[in-house]
Amino acid sequence: MSESLASGAHRAPQTTLRHKLAELRGPAVVPRPMDARALAALAANPGCRRRALLDGAGVDKTVLASKLGSPAAYGQSQFAIMRGNAFEAKVKADGGRELLRLLGIDDAAEVHVPDLAAAGPEGRAARTSLALREAAEAGAWTLLDHPLLALEVAGSPVFLEPDAVVVRPDGRWTVVEIKSFPMIDGSADAAKVGAAARQAAVYVLALERIAAVTEGARVAHSVLLVCPKDFSNLPTASAVDVRKQVAVTRRQLARLTRIEDIAAALPEGLTFDVETCSAEQLTEAVEAVPHAYAPECLAACELAFHCRERARCAGAVEVLGRSVRGELGGLTTIGAVLEAARGSVGAEAADEAEDPTVTAVRRARALRAEALEAVACR
């Protein structure tokens, strides 16, 4: 009886949170699921409460950005998506013959491919966990095609779908990432490989959660990256060490503020319903949630242009980059930096307190003046 009451008490907050997030998203709006790409981007900027809440609520940020008048160029083109799907289909054709070849397996009959179909994401995630445990017990090659993994992020469950997971006879689980960018002479574009590694790190973290309760199982920290070879469509593969990405992602996700804490601080009745709200209402709602803009957001977030414009209007030093923001300490606006450099009243008070940041800014201004004077005298 006490266990039942405890279980009910545990489910109640989750039910309340889901209801709150549905209200924020809009009752009639279908939630946009968070994928590993979005989760990796969120982990790269854990201080952004705005993105954490919008992703947690399943708000379509692409539509939201367009409604706000700042449409984002971020995202894959339809051509790139179609090309990626076609290449993945080729890799997995004929029972995954090409993928098995890359794993060094000639006979497909040696590999067990379990059926992972189930009702809903919770059912699919449970079926995947069961298949992984069964594969670990069997001690044979097993290929899981598009398994569904669950990972708790900021107190809310997120479902992730890697391209494939391979279970080796020794109990090792390896994530397989299939990408359509080429691998020329054994190497690929470093930025694209890095993005794939950060995405794969999220899958590794989700697998570790299952492996922790599965006897004899362990997750490989090297993922198998499958790409087209040179300028052909022939698949080739390379092992990519993601230990650094896993450690960074784990640490960053742990820093995320819990979604229910962010939602609790919002005004009553606030909503991001892109179907019923006007641009003015959506702007007011978005501005009610703090953001942490950085130039890196332009390559990872649909709301980056909107947040950049707001940061520029506020004169925030974040628009200059995280490294500059870190160097400027308590000087949080560009106006404050300029005042400190010119030696205004406020800056003099800070200087009296021997603020090293103000001293450094004034020194930089003096060096700039000397350099300009030297150029003018030539």
Rank of each mutant, 00 (worst) to 15 (best):
G330S: 14
V246F: 04
R378V: 04
L24N: 03
K229Y: 09
P228D: 06
I184K: 15
P31C: 11
V111A: 11
V219Y: 10
V223M: 13
T15V: 14
E348D: 13
L207G: 08
S180D: 12
V153F: 01
D351R: 15
F305Y: 09
R243D: 13
E137Q: 14
V167H: 13
T236H: 11
V175W: 00
A119N: 14
L53V: 09
A73V: 05
A212E: 09
A369F: 01
V375L: 09
T333C: 07
S4V: 00
E23D: 08
G58E: 07
Y203H: 14
D355T: 12
D55Y: 15
V358Q: 02
E339H: 10
D145Q: 11
A265R: 07
A299N: 13
V29N: 07
D145E: 12
D106T: 15
D106W: 12
Q245L: 02
I105T: 08
G321N: 08
S180P: 02
S7E: 15
A349S: 11
P169R: 05
A340G: 10
V358A: 04
H19V: 09
T128I: 00
A349E: 10
D351F: 13
S2Y: 05
C313P: 00
A57I: 06
P13W: 06
A349H: 12
G346L: 12
D145A: 07
A294F: 03
G343Y: 05
D60Q: 09
V63C: 04
E137C: 04
L205E: 07
D35Q: 03
L132N: 06
W141F: 14
V176P: 02
V317D: 03
R172N: 08
S66F: 00
S2K: 15
E110Q: 15
